[in-house]
Write a protein that binds this DNA or RNA. Sequence first.
DNA 1: GTCTATACCTGGATAGAC
DNA 2: GTCTATCCAGGTATAGAC
Lengths: 197, 197
Amino acid sequence: MAASATREKIVSSADQLFYERGFEVTSFADVAEMVGISRGNFYYHFKTKDEILDAVIARRIKDRDEMLGRWIDGDQTPKQSVASFIRILEMNNKKIRSSGCPVGTLFSELAKLNHPGRPAARGLFDLFRVWLRRRFEEMGRHRDADALAMHILARSQGAATLANAYPDEPFLETEVAQMLAWLDAVADQQDQTQQDT
Amino acid sequence: MAASATREKIVSSADQLFYERGFEVTSFADVAEMVGISRGNFYYHFKTKDEILDAVIARRIKDRDEMLGRWIDGDQTPKQSVASFIRILEMNNKKIRSSGCPVGTLFSELAKLNHPGRPAARGLFDLFRVWLRRRFEEMGRHRDADALAMHILARSQGAATLANAYPDEPFLETEVAQMLAWLDAVADQQDQTQQDT
DNA sequence: GTCTATACCTGGATAGAC
DNA sequence: GTCTATCCAGGTATAGAC
């Protein structure tokens, strides 16, 4: 149960390789080489490849959850928190240009593989979706909070995909600016719920 | 050179399998089984797997090019043409929910594989990008035509990715409606170029 | 906990008969 | 143009010594 140092290295290496090269294409030998252990030793820590995937997804969820927590733990307004989310694209722009979004590309691959880890990967999307929904609710957007969350999630995904396809263009920065402008407009509007009822 | 019936069946089967399961994970045996020929016969038509990929991408480009052509060959306004593009998401919504966008997911996979077919796959994006740019130019948006094209391409990509992650929700339809509303606003605006210079 | 050795399978690719 | 037979590399996974 205790997370050994080796186990931790395996998971973090697998995380990186799954992101940069893809899950299916990454072999035990690749991970073992990166960690610096033998292939045989591997099976002491993980019985199957799917177990490693589970551990990688759990690691990503924990990591993102802590990150999202930091973005609301001070005296930030909900709008500032959402802005922090939008700026992930800028923060990680180098990685995104070369490998896309770690959440979206993993899910896409598992979807095609019809892999049992699919729901777990969707959980990563859910994490962001629920967090964003709460921020919009705090802005008073009780009625369309979820729709707004899905919308900005989709915009981020699309920006990441095209930034991956056109890595040498300043497209990502342009798109971030537009998303922040969209956020301004949303935050300035009245709560649609009160208007409609 | 002449496209034999068998060759055609190989390419169309590979096209479908690459889309539904992914390029790397699809084996010669899979394609051969779907076509109904032996693995050996395969090599009469294609020397390597990469050659099949090239043929699949060429097929997709030809197919989309013809489709885009049909959307401008009548008396449609540029706005109507762009609306046709946006509605691909609805037209293909079943496939998109189960396998994502054929353009975006193929590119993402090849990017991670660092595959030589990457530029060819980007060509598919270019096809849509240039076509959309022309439509916005026809609307008088000479200055920001390319930015508008990239923006709507990204929105489509993001919508496809999230529809794939949440296939049971009516998200895709909502997003299409918002994109059409965006198009209305763009078409009604004055040409930014004239205002700025 | 870590290693080597190895079993077993599937993948891409080739040779040669029909 | 299509087939069977076969080679070889690399993948997952196991056994058992240290």
